[in-house]
Design a protein around this nucleic acid. Sequence first.
RNA 1: GCCUUGGUGGCGGAAUUGGUAGACGCGCUGGAUUCAAAAUCCAGUUCUUUCGGGAGUGUGGGUUCGAUUCCCACCCAAGGUACCA
Length: 941
Amino acid sequence: MQLENEAKTMDYNFREIEAKWQKYWATNQTFRALNQSDKPKFYVLDMFPYPSGAGLHVGHPLGYIASDIYARYKRHKGFNVLHPMGYDSFGLPAEQYAIQTGQHPAITTEANIKRYREQLDQLGFSFDWSREVRTSDPGYYKWTQWVFIQLFNSWYNKVTDKAEPISDLISSFERSGNKQIEAACDEDILEFSASDWEQFSHKTKQEILLKYRLTYLADTEVNWCPALGTVLANDEIVNGVSERGGHPVIRKKMTQWSMRITAYAQRLLDGLDTIDWPQPLKDSQTNWIGRSEGALVEFGIHDSEYKIPVFTTRPDTIFGASFMTLAPEHELVRKITTTEQKETIDAYVEATAKRSERDRMADVKTISGAFTGAYAEHPFTKEPIPIWIGDYVLAGYGTGAVMAVPCGDQRDYDFAKHFGIPIPNIFDGVDISEEAFADKANTVIANSDFLNGLSFKEATSKVIGELEKIGQGEGKINYRLRDAVFSRQRYWGEPFPVYYVEGMPQMIADEHLPLELPEVEKYLPTETGEPPLGNATTWAWDVEKCLVVDNQKIDHKTVFPLELNTMPGWAGSSQYFNRYMDSTNAEAIYSKEAIGYWQDVDLYIGGSEHATGHLLYSRFWQKFLFDKGIAPKEEFAKKLINQGMITGTSAFVYKDMDSNRVYSKGLLEGRNIIPIHADVSLVNSSDELDVEAFKQWLPEYKEAEFVLEDGRYIVGREIEKMSKSKYNVVNPDLICEEYGADSLRLYEMFLGPLEQSKPWNTAGISGVHSFLKKLWKLYTSVDDSEASAENLKTLHKTIKKVEEDIENFSFNTSVSTFMICVNELTAQKCHSRRILEPLAILVSPYAPHIAEELWEKLGHSQSISEAVFPKFEEKHLVENSKEYPISFNGKMRFKLELPLDLAKDEIEAVVMAHEKTRAQLDGRTPKKVIVVPGKIVNIVG
RNA sequence: GCCUUGGUGGCGGAAUUGGUAGACGCGCUGGAUUCAAAAUCCAGUUCUUUCGGGAGUGUGGGUUCGAUUCCCACCCAAGGUACCA
C-alpha cells in the first residue's frame, strides 16, 4: 500500500489531503462566525448529540453532513453563516456507568466528548468550535438555572396572553385580591380579597403564589420507576416500561417541580402555522396538545353537597345522558359511594390500582366498572343519573369524569350494553340498535326539550347558553397537554437553584449562580429513598455568606437545605440554540447585540423522534423568553428538516438445531435452523462469511462444522434498525480510513432522499469513491484555453441542477449530477480553467477536502470556503433542435430530431410523412394528432 | 383503531407544472490492459418475444390525446399515538 502511494504521487491521496485541510481549517479558524457582518446572516443548526460511550455510527452524521453542505453552500452564496456544535452532556448512561464503576460521570463524559470530537473532525464539518456548549458545564447550566428562576418569578396573564412578573401579580393581590385575575394556574385556588391577602401569613402567601408561578411545586401523580429510583415523563416510558433499561413503572404521588407549559397550549398550537416544519411533525405536536372544544357541565348529586364537573365535547347530547362514569381514582368516589355498594367499589378501585398502565392498555376489549349507588341530578330534567366508575375514564384527562351518552359515544354504548343501562335515543331518524351514532355533521337532535330539531352546532351553542343561565356550566376548551414534570431523582443533571425555608422554595440570587453539582460518595438514591444529591454532605445554603456549606450547619435560620432533585434531560436543550449566539458570555445568557443580530435559527436539522419532547419544550421556553423580552422571536427555528434513519443490513448464519453444523443460506431447506446475528464486518460485499474470523469472534462456534455451498459460506441478510445489539453497526472511522471523509460524505447523501429512512450498504461506496478519482484526474492538466460550447453547457446545467437541489434539500440528486458532469467533461477532454474552477466550488460543499486541494492546485492561496458560487447562465443551455419523442396512443415508439423553431403544423407534417409513422399506423388513419412544441408528439388512432 | 410517510429493475434510487419510465451508482455479464491480480477503460444489463414487436411504476377502477405523477376504493410496509369523554 505504502509503495503504491509513493509510486503514484499523482494519484488522489485522500488521507494526506484530508488531514492537511482539517489542520488548515482548525489553524486558520476558517469557520469562525462573527456576531456582526455586512453580509446577511444565516444560522444552520444541528441537534447536538448526547456523547455516548459507543461513539458515532454512520447513521449519526447523516443530518450533520446535510447541514454542513447547506452551511458551506450559504457561505459561497455570500452569507455570514453560524454553524455551531456542542454536546447534550447530562444524561443517564454516564450516571449508570458511575453507579457501576464509581467513576465520576464528568470523567466518562469528558472522555466520550473527546472521542466524538475526533470523529466529527475527521468528517470535515465546518463547525465554529469556538462556540461549543456542553449542557453539563457549570458556565452553561448557570443559564439553565437562570431561566428556571425567571419562570419561577413569572405567572401567565390570560388577559394580556403573556407571561408577566410575579411582582405585578402580588401588587394586584394587594390592590384588589384575585377576583379579576385571569391566570393560567392551579384549579383549586380560592377567591380572596385585598384585605384577606394582607392577613395571610408569609407562608400562605408563598403557597398561593406557587399556584400561579410558571414553574411550581405540586403533588403530582408520577410514573415512579423503582429500579432507577426516579420519576419518568410519559415520553420516557415505552410500552409501560422505562425507555432506558426497560424497568417496570408504577403510579405514585410525589412533590415535584412542574413547568406550566399548558399556559402556552394555544400559542404552541397557533405558532405551528408560522413555521416551516414538516407536516407530520406539526401533526404530532397538534395531537399531543390535543385541543378539544366543548363544555364544562356541573352535575349536582342527590342527597349531597358535592358537585361533579364534567367536560364534554358533545353538550348537545345532554338529554341522552343515562349515566355518569368517574375514573376509579376520582377523589369523590370515596365520598359518595353508598354503604351497600362500598364493598364492590373498594374491590374495583383496588383491582384497577393494581393493574399497570400496560395491562389497562393491552386490554381494551374487556368492559369493567362498578356502581357507586349514588345518583347525580340532570341539570335540566332533574332526573336521577346513576354514577358508575370505570377504568375507561382516565383521571388525568378533563375532570376525570364523563357524562355518558350511550347513543352518541361507542365506549359509553358498550358500557351501557354490558351493564344493562338504558340507551335513550336522542337523534332524529337514526337507528342505534347496533352501535352508537357519533356523526356530528349529520346530527339532528330529538327527544331533548328545547334542543329538538337542532344541528350539532346550533344545539351546542344553545345548551351552553342555557347552562350558563342556570349557573351549571360554560363553554370550555380542553387540552390533552399536561404540565411537564421537571424534577428527576438523579445525580447527573442540573441542580435546582433552590433552598427551602419553612418547606417553601426560595431561589438563589442570580449573582451566586451557578449552583454547582456537589460531590457525592454514591450515585444511587439514599437508603431513605431520597435522590442521589441526598448523599452529599456539603449541600446546604448559607443565606448570609451566600455559599454552599456543610449540611451539619443547617439551623433553618441562616442555613437551609438545598433541593435534592435535578433537572431533566430536556432542560439543557431548551435554549442551547440561543446560547450559541454568545456562548462564552459570563454576564448574561447572551448579549442583546448577539441575539439581535442572529435572531433565530434559519435551518434546523434533526430526528423526528424529538417531535413532542425537545421540540415542544424548546418552543415553550422560547415563547416565555419572548414574553420576557429576552428573545426577539416567538419561534426559535424558521425551518426544520427531519433526516431519516439509516437502517443496517444485518447478517445471519444458520445454526442447525439438531447438530453442531452451521449451514450456508442456500442449504436450509427442510432443516430446523435458528438464525444467529453475525457481525457485519465479518462479511464481504458478496455476502460471504469469513468463517475463521467468525469462529474467533464467537468462540462457542469453534468446533462447529460450517457447511459451505460452492466453497463459500453465504449469510442471510435482513434490514433492521442500526444497533449495536444487532451487530449491524457500521463505524464511520473504518470508512474514512479506507475511502476518506469526502467519499463518506458523498455516499451518505447519495443513498437517497434525506428525509426518508434508508438502508446502509457499504458495497455502493466504491462508486462515489471512483467518482472522486475521476474528478481528481480531470485536474491533472489544467490550461487557460477557452471553454467550448459543449463544456459550458455541461457546466451550466450542473450549476442549475446543484443549486436547485441544495435549495430543495435534494442532496442525493446533486451527487448524480456531479457524476454526469465529470463523465461528460472527461469525454470532452476538458482542461479549461474556466470550467474547472467553478466546478471545484460546486463540489466544495459536498466534498470540501478535495475541493480545497484542487483550488490550491489551481493557484489560489485562500480557502475555497468563501469563493463565490458560480452564476448560472441560461444562454449556454439554449438549444435549436429537439429530439422529439413520437408516441402512438401515449406510448413512445421512436424519436425524431427536429428544429425547435418549427411550428405545430410543420411538425405534424414532417412526422406524418415519416416512414416509421406509416409503419406504426399500418394503414390506419389517425383520429387525432397532438403536437406540443418542444415537448412531444402523440398520434391517436 | 387513528395520524403520518412510503410501495418503481437483482439492489440504493431518478423522472421540474401530467409529456421519452428506469437517470446516476452498485451488482452482474462479456471484452481490453496485465505473467497474474488490483486499479483503470469499453460494451451490455426492466421483463418478455416468433426479434416485427408486446407488457410494465403495490392491486382494482376512473379522468385525459397522454398518468409513476391527478381522483376513488383497496392491499402491504415503516414510524408515531393510544380507551381524550
